[in-house]
Computed example of a mutant assay.
Amino acid sequence: MIEHRSEPTSAHFARGKTPIFASQYDQRLGYCLYVPENLRTERAPLLVMQHGTERNASLYRDHMAGFADEHQVVVLAPLFPAGIIDPEDLHNFKFIEYQGIRYDRALLAMIDEVSRRYPVDPDVFYLHGFSGGGQFAHRFLYLHPDRLAGVSIGAPGRITQLDDSLPWWLGTKDLEQRFGRAVDLESLRRVPILMVVGDNDVETWEIDNPGEANWMDGVENTGRTRIERLRTLERDFLAQGIDVRFELVPGVAHRGSLILPAVRDFFAGLLQSRSEIHRPTPVTPLRHQE
Rank of each mutant, 00 (worst) to 15 (best):
L59C: 05
Y60G: 11
Y60V: 09
R61V: 11
R61Y: 02
R61M: 09
R61W: 05
H63A: 15
H63C: 10
M64N: 08
A65C: 14
A65G: 13
G66F: 05
G66N: 10
F67Q: 05
A68D: 00
D69M: 05
D69C: 04
E70I: 03
H71I: 02
H71T: 02
Q72P: 00
Q72E: 06
Q72G: 00
V73T: 11
V74I: 08
V74W: 06
V74D: 05
V74H: 07
V74K: 06
L76E: 07
L76S: 09
L76M: 11
A77T: 04
A77C: 09
P78Q: 07
P78V: 07
P78Y: 07
L79Q: 11
L79I: 04
L79Y: 14
L79S: 05
P81E: 13
P81N: 12
P81W: 14
A82V: 06
A82D: 02
A82W: 06
A82G: 01
G83K: 06
I84G: 12
I84V: 13
I85R: 05
I85P: 00
D86A: 09
P87R: 15
P87V: 11
E88G: 01
D89V: 08
L90R: 07
L90A: 10
H91L: 07
H91Y: 13
N92P: 00
N92T: 01
F93L: 02
F93G: 00
K94R: 10
K94D: 12
K94G: 06
F95Q: 12
F95S: 11
F95N: 13
F95H: 15
E97C: 11
Y98H: 08
Y98A: 13
Y98N: 10
Y98L: 01
